[in-house]
């Protein structure tokens, strides 16, 4: 055996080490399971399969938003506009689909067929993403400021269109189809299946594609990535458009499920999406994190919420409990990673 071959074998052996991302992800997944078991001890009737299903089905919207938010965070950018886009796209879809002959302003719309109304609403959502991209990439305004602005802009437009409340009358019969379609003969609805598909695709893109790689590079060191031939600007534009489209789809599906366009829908969802990403181990400075971690971050938060509901806790206690869970989870990650690096 040549020296080089020996060296090569030695290298190969060392290379099977778990990456930091996998380490944190398994940590978060483990924490989610542990939390579920803890809640099962403390809360009567908590330990059952239906409850596990609920944790996912109840949170399809925020998990779907979390995918776009996670990609952007990994690339070193914030997206706080997703909650606003959820409201906007839902309101637009309803408005475009409402018949033109309503009794008052709030019950008359544009009379488009459902599919066209939804496509147009999606374009509306995308245009918010385009505004984000334009200000962040071309004008180099910090993303947290830009998307805080578009968050209010999107919700503001939604409020204008619904005059501060909601539109829920005079809709075509098929408007509620998408949001309420149940799948595979179970009570699981289409949006939940779409979320699951989105997660699989996102994990594949993140782990296995050049696109995923570039996202990490840009977040890890934007200067070096540019000098290494990465078109940072173009990539970030794509990410903002993607995130906005995802938020648009979520908004439209919610509007379809409840057959209403509600200007306050998705309030604070942008923060929930941010919190579950951070809970899932995504670094707020970029360059680190994973979609699957975000998913388990959502499960942690959902477990706390669900247990608190089962115990019929007062809103103040629910809020406090969530805050404590988030704080402990994030501190534990920081600590575990620091220990691992020291070791």
């Amino acid at each position: 055996m040549t020296d080089q071959a020996v060296a090569g074998r030695r290298l190969a052996k060392q290379d099977n080490r778990l990456s930091d991302e996998m380490f944190i992800t398994s940590l978060v997944a483990g924490a989610a399971v542990a939390l579920f078991l803890l809640a099962s001890i403390l809360v009567p009737n908590f330990f059952q399969f239906q409850n596990v299903v609920n944790l996912v089905t109840n949170n399809w919207a925020v998990i779907s938003l979390g995918v776009g938010v996670t990609f952007l965070l990994v690339s070193g950018n914030f997206d706080l506009s997703v909650g606003g886009i959820v409201a906007l796209s839902g309101v637009l879809a309803v408005w475009f689909a409402q018949a033109t002959d309503g009794a008052n302003a709030l019950s008359s719309g544009w009379g488009m067929p459902t599919w066209l109304a939804m496509v147009c609403a999606l374009i509306g959502a995308m245009s918010i993403g385009a505004v984000n991209a334009a200000f962040v990439v071309a004008l180099r305004v910090p993303s947290i400021i830009v998307t805080l602005g578009t968050m209010m802009l999107a919700r503001g437009i939604a409020q204008v269109v619904t005059q501060g409340s909601q539109r829920n009358t005079n809709l075509p019969a098929d408007f509620g189809t998408l949001g309420n379609m149940t799948m595979f003969g179970t009570s699981i609805k289409l949006p939940v299946v779409l979320m699951a598909t989105l997660i699989f695709v996102a994990v594949f893109v993140e782990r296995k594609t050049v696109f995923g790689r570039l996202t990490y590079l840009i977040g890890a060191n934007p200067v070096a990535s540019r000098l290494s031939g990465v078109d940072n600007a173009r990539h970030v534009v794509k990410l903002y458009l993607f995130s906005a489209v995802m938020a648009g789809v979520v908004g439209i599906l919610l509007a379809s499920e409840f057959k209403s366009g509600f200007s306050n829908r998705g309030t604070l969802m942008e923060f929930d999406a941010l919190v579950i990403s951070l809970l899932g181990g995504v670094a707020i400075a970029g360059g680190f994190g994973s979609v699957i971690g975000m998913f388990f971050g959502a499960i942690i938060l959902a477990t706390v919420t669900s247990a608190a509901t089962g115990l019929v806790l007062s809103p103040d206690w629910q809020f406090t409990l969530k805050a404590i869970a988030v704080f402990i989870a994030i501190m534990a990650q920081t600590w575990a990673l620091a220990r691992r690096h020291a070791g």
């Binding site: 809360v43 239906q50 409850n51 829908r265 509901t309 089962g310 019929v312």
Partner: peptide, 18 residues
């Protein structure tokens, strides 16, 4: 107070456990 999505989520969580 967060609205209809919250109401739905609460009902699902609550009635599963109770």
């Amino acid at each position: 107070s967060k609205g209809q999505e919250a109401a739905k989520q609460i009902i699902v969580d609550l009635l599963t456990q109770r």
